[in-house]
Computed example of a mutant assay.
Amino acid sequence: MTVKENLQKIQEEIAAACQRSGRNLNDVKIIAVTKYVTVERTQQALDAGVFHIGENRVEGLLEKTNSINADPVLHFIGSLQSKKVKKVIDHIDYLHSLDRLSLAEEIQKRWSSQEPLKCFVQVNVSGEESKSGLDPNQIISFIHDLSLFPAIQVVGLMTMAPFVENSEETRPVFKQLRLLQQEVQALSLEHAPCTELSMGMSNDYIIAVEEGATFIRIGSSLVG
């Protein structure tokens, strides 16, 4: 299938999930995760109507930034080493993997814009050792600490669910992140409005949408 055909199928499934859960379709944004595909394939996604591109490698992000014929919203969705912040900081619109104060310090050091960088705090809801992110019990304290860094705005929380055959099994993970996001939002912190949820990938995005995802990160199902 073409990227355009894939996108249409995904959009139809998102619309159905929104209808089932009483959500507004416009509140869900698709990030095309292009880490495994060429610049040409990335361009096809943009031409098909995707506005958000996600990369998890610094080299991939810079390659796409320098080569694509468009001006998409760029998301860095992988774990970011502090020493590589200076390479990507001027290219990205969102960071999905803020999980330590040393990274926040480096962002503060390198950030040159008048507007803060939109960041998602990464949460390891499932507790898997193979996944990055903070323990849910650390989130409130961590977000309070981020008030020391005016270059950072916490727009939401991000997580990755376990990869399982039955996507329904991921629902408790997404639900817990939503409840945690609502807890942070209720604090009414100026530096952390926390209105967004980055969760759901190719194998589980339908469940994520039903549980409140506002950004879903789709790779293989969209661009291959």
Results as ranks from 00 to 15, higher is better:
R23D: 00
V28L: 01
I31P: 06
E115Q: 11
S82A: 14
A213W: 02
V73K: 14
K35W: 07
F76S: 08
A48C: 06
K131F: 02
L98V: 06
N56K: 07
L80V: 04
Y36N: 15
S82E: 08
K118F: 06
F163W: 09
V85G: 04
F76Y: 13
E211I: 10
V3D: 09
V125C: 05
N56D: 11
V164M: 00
D135E: 11
Q11M: 12
N56C: 07
S79Q: 14
F163T: 11
D27G: 03
R171P: 01
M199T: 03
S221W: 10
V123R: 03
S102E: 13
F120M: 05
A45H: 06
H52E: 04
V123A: 00
P116I: 02
S102L: 10
V39D: 11
P150K: 02
V37T: 15
R20A: 01
S132T: 09
G224W: 10
V3A: 12
L98M: 06
E128D: 01
P116L: 04
Q114T: 07
L25V: 12
R20H: 03
K109T: 05
V125Y: 00
G49R: 05
L7S: 09
V121D: 03
P150Q: 04
G22T: 05
K9R: 15
I143C: 10
S112V: 06
H144F: 12
V123F: 00
V209T: 12
Q153D: 00
T214K: 13
H96Q: 14
K29V: 05
F149S: 06
I107K: 04
G49Y: 02
P162K: 00
A151Y: 01
D99I: 03
S132I: 06
N203K: 08
N69F: 13
S130N: 03
L74E: 08
A16R: 07
N6L: 08
L187C: 11
I92G: 09
